[in-house]
Design a protein around this nucleic acid. Sequence first.
DNA 1: GCAAAAGTGTTCCAGATACACCCATGT
DNA 2: ACATGGGTGTATCTGGAACACTTTTGC
Lengths: 229, 229
Amino acid sequence: MTLTAPSRRSSPAEDTAVVTTSVVVFTIRGRRLELLLVGRRSEPFRGYWNLPGGNVLPEEDLQVCAERKLREKAGVEGVYLEQLYTFGRPDRDPRGRVVTVAYYALVPPSRLRQPAAADAGMVGWFALDGLPALAFDHGEIVGQAHRRLVAKLDYSTIAYQFMPEAFTLSQLQGVYESILGEPLDKRNFRKRVLGLGHLVETGTVCRDGSHRPAKLYRLRNPRTVEIIK
Amino acid sequence: MTLTAPSRRSSPAEDTAVVTTSVVVFTIRGRRLELLLVGRRSEPFRGYWNLPGGNVLPEEDLQVCAERKLREKAGVEGVYLEQLYTFGRPDRDPRGRVVTVAYYALVPPSRLRQPAAADAGMVGWFALDGLPALAFDHGEIVGQAHRRLVAKLDYSTIAYQFMPEAFTLSQLQGVYESILGEPLDKRNFRKRVLGLGHLVETGTVCRDGSHRPAKLYRLRNPRTVEIIK
DNA sequence: GCAAAAGTGTTCCAGATACACCCATGT
DNA sequence: ACATGGGTGTATCTGGAACACTTTTGC
């Protein structure tokens, strides 16, 4: 039934697969939604880009594996990370059976290390609408991650995960507009977002140009994503 | 539960795992949401119930594996089946590293075979609020499946997947009430559901008691689940 | 004629949308 | 003084929620 009895599992390679995690790491830079890719240096798909990821270690939890990849490739920890979908087509990797548990992560641009590469290897940030050809089925994974992100925008507070500790309402609106790809009405946006009561004024302001300073806000409950409406 | 793990079959050399699928098979019988469980005849968790599922075959797609389990244990094909989440805690199976890709399925009660068991083995339908203790982390899987189902109820037409070809609005309302666990207003329900335009009258009626016959409806696009609003 | 479920409209309220001007600052 | 983004209120529309009686049938 669910599992073959241990006694019958004579050949150890039988019914096993390599399990990996891949992470779609999103950030927002310059009002554009971008994601992190890693250049492949070996076959298959040498010279292509793919998502950061790798094998799940024998005693490692799936989520922990994704966190590790995030640390190794993006150099960040403690950011929003959610399981997305599991990809397991038998032919998706020419080397053999590989089942990939995909995650997506949201990184505030303020948390990006300056050389985006943490460990060795070629890594780079790419605008979502301007991706190179991706290895394996990673294009499909990216598409699914983006759809999930857009869907969650309007029934949760997930967008706040792109924000630094303190931020202005205009910055927050910019994040929404970057993900949705369309402009929003300023007054309605502010009315709605303040009406939800998730934000509190810090009391400080942000002066960053020759114009009126903007009030800074912070989350009432940082680190939590709430379902709204 | 106190099983020793003498045959713990982690393969330290290779990062491989046994990959299985498990399926939370929902149906609605007698205005109650029920799901299919299989009795375990061997250790670990002998005598407990668990979800139908089993190893993914070497050349088998994950979804195809779930469909196969659905056929073997529930005796149904072609019903709604969606990937739910992947469970991979290193210690979730005392025999070794097992990564389970969980699915959930919705079966119209009209499609249930009379002896619910297709192949050999003890299987049974259980009301969601009255489940026995489940093996492994299957209780957690069921909880997540139920939450997903409830969430999808009000932004998709997923409930229709429980309906036979032709059905009355009262039957459809009963399905919603069973899943949500609360009564709905008849007029508002009918107004909303007819307003969406997914249903068409068949022209026939259903006489099933000493009262006015009910109009039968069918889906404009059966087999598809649409996102609403 | 009575029991039992089918069928049907209106009012009300809340949340979304559309829309334009003054404010505080740096140069 | 002027350029720049910050900040604010109202009228309207739309979709959801509350709510009770008539209709058709079987017995």
